[in-house]
Simulated assay, not measured.
Amino acid sequence: MIENFDLGDIVQMKKEHPCGNNKFEITRLGADIKIKCIECGRIVMLPRSKFQKNAKKLIKADQV
Rank of each mutant, 00 (worst) to 15 (best):
I35V: 15
P18N: 06
N4C: 08
C19Y: 05
L7R: 04
G8K: 02
K23A: 07
E25R: 15
K50C: 07
A31D: 12
M45F: 05
I10K: 01
K23N: 15
S49R: 12
K60V: 12
I59Q: 01
S49W: 12
A31W: 09
A55D: 04
K57I: 09
D62L: 06
V11R: 02
F51V: 06
S49I: 08
C37G: 06
C19S: 01
P18V: 04
F5W: 07
E3R: 15
N21L: 05
L58P: 13
N22P: 00
Q52N: 08
V11M: 03
G20N: 01
P18G: 00
M1G: 15
A31T: 12
M45P: 02
L7C: 02
D32P: 01
K57Q: 11
E16S: 10
K14E: 10
E16C: 06
L7G: 03
V44Y: 13
C19H: 02
I26E: 02
F51T: 07
M45G: 07
V64T: 09
I33D: 01
R28K: 14
I59K: 03
I2G: 11
N54G: 11
F5H: 06
M1Q: 08
K36G: 03
R28L: 08
V64C: 01
I10A: 00
K23Y: 15
F24P: 04
N54E: 14
T27D: 02
D6E: 14
K34P: 00
F24V: 10
K23R: 14
A31L: 11
D62E: 04
G41L: 05
F5A: 09
G30A: 04
R28C: 05
C37R: 11
E16M: 07
E25L: 12
I59L: 09
N22R: 14
P47E: 15
D32V: 15
F51S: 05
I2A: 12
K15L: 08
